[in-house]
């Protein structure tokens, strides 16, 4: 089953870095998996934990948050807040069987289309190995 399983990844990308990098990956014809659904955010610090939870409850197999490297956030420290929240969310999600590999926070520079491409491939591989999220299978969990 894992051969054919195509995980759905919801990616919340900061407009100033990872989103630009994803765009660059596109214009440079670097292919990244189709299953990454991108939501453009103004900053990784704008990603409210409730968005991440909602994505999982709606059946996402993985959630990716992309932000600027520490020191590069356009709002100075939105990414550092995002990191605290990610640590917190991970603790909660883990307890309820959502493995750490399903929820990523990563720093990607605007010029680094390749890194975004790598992350999406790597995450897709990991999720293929993990299999579908229980919530994408049993849609009554909500």
């Amino acid at each position: 089953m894992n051969d054919t399983f195509e995980p759905t990844i919801v990616a919340f990308l900061c407009n100033w870095c990872t989103f630009t990098a994803a765009d660059l990956a596109g214009t440079s014809r670097l292919s990244y998996p189709q299953n990454v659904k991108i939501v453009r955010m103004m900053c990784s610090g704008m990603v409210d934990p409730v968005y991440v939870l909602k994505a999982f409850l709606e059946g996402a197999d993985g959630v990716y948050v992309g932000g600027c490297w520490p020191g590069d956030c356009h709002y100075i420290n939105g990414n550092l807040k995002a990191r605290r929240r990610a640590a917190l969310l991970t603790e909660i999600l883990k307890q309820f069987g959502i493995e750490e590999d399903r929820f990523w926070l990563r720093w990607v520079a605007a010029s680094d289309g390749i890194m975004f491409q790598e992350h999406s491939k790597e995450m897709t591989e990991k999720l293929r190995a993990l299999g579908p999220s229980p919530l994408s299978v049993d849609r009554t969990i909500a």
Binding site: P49, V50, L53, K54, L57, I92, A142
Partner: peptide, 11 residues
């Protein structure tokens, strides 16, 4: 959205 409510409260 009961589950979302409780999970959000936890965060």
């Amino acid at each position: 959205e009961s589950l979302l409510y409780h999970l959000t409260r936890m965060t």
